[in-house]
Simulated scan of single mutants.
Amino acid sequence: MTGNAAYVHCPVLLALAGAHGHEPIHSALEVTFNQSGRIAWKGANANGYQIRSMVGEVDVMITSTILYFIWNSGYIEAEAQSGRKVIAIEDRPTFAYVLPPGTHVGFRLKEVGQNRQLSVELERDFLLGAAGFEHPASFDIGETWDYKDPLSWQLAGVIYDECISRAPQGTLYTETAATLLAMHLVRNLSTATRLKEIRRGGLPPSLLRRACDYMMSRLGDDISLQEVAASVQLSTGHFSTAFKQSLDVAPHAWLRRQRIERAKTLFHDPDLDLAQIAMILGYANQSSFGVAFKRETGLTPMQWRVREAI
């Protein structure tokens, strides 16, 4: 929801345990929020919220791995209970936690207001693909409260911005950030004992060419990282890391560069306006195209067209 704040009586845990990665046992939660946004892809989803106020209580059983991040510019008076542990969710600038499947947790929210929140739900297969496990049975994520990892917080900020702005850079961008988040999570908080070795030196030339050709053939589509990785039969984690080793740029950034180069060619067609060019290149709207074009060139599409016409 965007625009003015709306009062919602939530039958499920809207803002503290993700959209689908839990089963509500008991819920009496009331939320007033200014804006929200959701991005979903195979095996994962992310939900961003701008919260005005939240009060009530809820008990849930977690069914997928949940990462939750809170940026607090207002106040928080709340606690969570997991088993015999009681965790104070303190009134401070940031707070994050990780809940694995099977966690039964209750939240008691006395007063929460003026903050931003992000939930990232990761299914087991997505985690396996990100980390490149050889023996899935040996892998579990540990329940963690007050998760402070700096890189995870940076990635969470990227994902939150994409959720709230409705993914202007495309699914590939958000999924790449979530894959790095999942990879980092597994390597820091899991019980894994055997991980596949990521080959050093990047992708073999034949696989690199195949991946690039696949992305070029889908230039007008909002493709996912899993689709591109599958085209060369690699896990998402292995592919994204090796691709960047090969070209010194992430897959989403490489694809954006190719789309912008194609846009420069399309600008010479007087029958195409900017909205049509944006659609041809797979952008949701002209605004998203403009953001991507300026990020790549330093100019807006209109400024580029004027400069080239001189």
Rank of each mutant, 00 (worst) to 15 (best):
I159T: 00
L128N: 13
L122M: 14
S64P: 11
L189I: 03
G37R: 02
S73M: 14
Q114T: 14
D140P: 01
D125N: 09
Q233P: 04
G220C: 09
A96I: 01
A292H: 02
P101D: 09
V55C: 12
R209P: 02
A275R: 12
N72H: 07
H9C: 11
N45C: 14
N115H: 15
I70N: 11
L122G: 13
A192W: 06
A278P: 01
N45R: 06
Q114E: 15
R209Q: 13
F33N: 08
G56Y: 06
L181P: 00
P205M: 00
G157D: 00
R256K: 06
F107M: 07
V60R: 13
R187C: 04
C163W: 02
A17H: 13
D146G: 03
S190M: 05
S231Y: 00
R262I: 02
H104M: 14
H268A: 13
M183E: 11
T191Y: 04
S119C: 11
I164D: 00
A28V: 02
A17R: 08
W71C: 13
M279L: 07
R210V: 08
M302C: 07
K244S: 10
A131C: 08
A19W: 07
F69N: 12
V98L: 15
G237K: 07
G18A: 08
L29Y: 02
F126A: 10
Y49S: 09
